[in-house]
């Protein structure tokens, strides 16, 4: 039985590899397939998955800020309710002026996710309809979920702080003290002090 399911996942990967340019692909574990593609391959891959392989449910769409590589990674998560397989499609765009294709004609609910990502990370989607302002109101700074947006500094500048909280430690410092492990370089670069 498990071989049968595995073969379904392998089948999807084989079919995709035959038709599209797949940069990287892997079966993370049973019922979890992952591919990495270029932005221009996004729409064909998603359409193929929906129409031919019955990945009909658009579960989620999220964004990861890889500031070290200068790229955003956008993740589309699809779900096949018959075979119960999660299908992750990942793509990377440049952090500055990144543009992605708009997929809300495939799943209408993608519109909401795309608008949120546009607002929180500043990635533009081609031909995305909807107000620029989505969740934030009167926001005039850098998109707040980018990692180079210094939240602590912003909070110190904008809001009041009640005295008595100055000795509150950064979580990273706390972890370092407790476990004596070195922080990775990129974490040091963006820690508060």
């Amino acid at each position: 039985m498990s071989e049968n399911i595995l073969s379904k996942e392998q089948l999807l990967l084989d079919l995709l590899k035959k038709k599209f340019i797949i940069n990287e692909s892997s079966i993370k574990r049973a019922k979890r397939v992952e591919v990495k593609v270029d932005p221009k391959e996004i729409i064909p891959v998603l359409l193929y998955a929906k129409e031919n392989s019955r990945y009909i449910s658009f579960a989620h769409m999220s964004c990861v800020d890889w500031i070290e590589d200068g790229e955003f990674e956008v993740v589309y998560i699809l779900w096949n309710p018959e075979d119960k397989i999660n299908f992750f499609v990942k793509t990377r765009v440049s952090r500055d002026n990144g543009v992605l294709p708009n997929i809300d004609f495939i799943w209408r609910q993608a519109n909401t996710y795309e608008r949120e990502i546009r607002e929180m990370f500043g990635i533009q989607f081609e031909g995305l309809i909807g107000r620029q302002e989505f969740i934030l109101e009167d926001w005039e700074h850098m998109p707040p979920m980018r990692r180079d947006f210094d939240t602590a500094e912003f909070v110190k500048k904008t809001y009041f702080n009640r005295p008595g909280r100055e000795d509150a430690k950064d979580v990273r410092e706390f972890v370092q003290e407790r476990t004596d492990e070195e922080l990775p370089d990129f974490a040091k670069k963006y820690s508060r002090d």
């Binding site: 934030l136 707040p144 947006f149 939240t151 602590a152 912003f154 909070v155 809001y159 009041f160 702080n161 009640r162 008595g164 909280r165 509150a168």
Partner: peptide, 15 residues
């Protein structure tokens, strides 16, 4: 009172 667990959020007031 002081922001609680959201004390360093970009969008919530603290006091």
């Amino acid at each position: 009172i002081n922001g609680g667990m959201y004390w360093d959020s970009y969008n919530t007031i603290n006091v």
